[in-house]
Computed example of a mutant assay.
Amino acid sequence: MGEEAKGIDFLSLGLQVVAGLALFLYAVTLMGDTLKELAGDRMRTFLARFTSNPFSGILTGTVATTLLDSSSVVIIMVLTMVNASLISSIESFGVIMGANIGTTISSQIIAFNIAEYSPILLVFGLLLSTIGENETRHKIGKVVFGAGLIFFGLWTMDKAVEPLHNYPPFFEWMKKLDSPIEGALIGGLLTLIIQSSSATVGIAIVLASQQLISLQAGIAIMLGAEIGTCSDTLLAVIGRSKEAVRAGLFHLLFNIASVIIGLLLIHQLVATVEWLSGDAPLGRKIANAHVLFNVLGVVLFAWFIPYFHRSLNALVR
């Protein structure tokens, strides 16, 4: 072990990573809550109006998640509407699938290396949110401030892990994540703890940008995050109607089925992403894999929505 590796202050490193993660999670929550306030009843009307068939539901879920920057917010909103009999469970399935596609937009944004410009967003957002008395402008300012805080949190984590380049034991541990099962378990557990699949994928992108994990390890972590994010949905259906329970179970089963296929074909997924991404940075390749995996999963299973519905009707009587 080199002298520089021996000099790593792991307490300071850990505190910086935790601080960066805390900023990221707070920013995601701030943006999600503020965007939900801005959209409010209009988003519920939008969801109810365009769910008449699975494919319009998929498009609706994609657009809603992109606008609200949170698949959990959209899915929980949909479950509430199902519980209130505003839409049926089968109408919610397409929206839930679309939410999986919409959440990949955040990973694409995270993969842009614009962290050094985060102070501009922070200052601009702070000014918008505090100057004047226009409530809508204040909320837009909060969203801009949250975006800046996301990139600043990622930058903090990125700088914190730089010393690990000179610490061989960390590389040895990271190599274990190349095992699809172990990588997925880590991704799922991390998402379960921090309650944000976007943060888990963001961490994978940060580690990849520092060349600390391989593309396969990053994809495995991302696949695990797809399972971990279902915890929000399952908690949201406790005590709800049977229709809402069916919708929540659909989210879990759809994600599990997609991830199993992803793990079985992970080598093919890695090769396809390498081919499509060319010389793109490793972090961008993980973001591209996130998009490719979720889009292919929706394309594959969208045709089987009626079968899912019949099976869940039989399961939840």
Rank of each mutant, 00 (worst) to 15 (best):
M1Y: 06
L11V: 13
S12H: 15
G14K: 11
F24G: 01
F24R: 04
T29P: 06
L30F: 02
D41N: 00
L47M: 15
A48V: 14
R49A: 12
F50E: 07
N53L: 11
G61K: 06
V63W: 10
L68C: 08
L68D: 06
V74L: 02
V74R: 07
I76G: 02
M77E: 03
T80W: 05
V82G: 00
V82I: 04
A84S: 07
L86K: 11
N100I: 06
I101C: 12
I110A: 02
A111Y: 02
V123F: 14
L126W: 15
L127C: 14
L128Q: 12
N134H: 12
H138N: 05
K142M: 15
V144A: 08
G146Y: 07
G148Y: 07
G148N: 02
G148W: 08
L154H: 10
M157S: 05
K159Q: 03
A160Q: 01
V161Q: 00
P163N: 00
Y167A: 08
P168I: 10
D178A: 12
P180G: 02
E182N: 04
T191V: 12
S196H: 12
S198T: 09
A199C: 10
L207F: 15
L212P: 13
S214E: 10
I219E: 02
G224T: 03
G224L: 09
I227A: 07
I227E: 09
G228Q: 03
G228K: 00
A236G: 11
K242M: 13
R246H: 12
R246S: 13
F250K: 07
S258D: 14
L264N: 02
I266K: 00
V270S: 07
V270I: 05
A271P: 09
A271K: 01
S277F: 08
D279Q: 13
K285R: 13
V291L: 13
L292N: 05
L292Q: 07
G297S: 15
G297V: 11
V298Y: 11
V299K: 03
A302G: 13
W303K: 01
F304E: 01
P306C: 06
F308I: 05
H309M: 06
R310S: 14
L312E: 04
V316G: 08
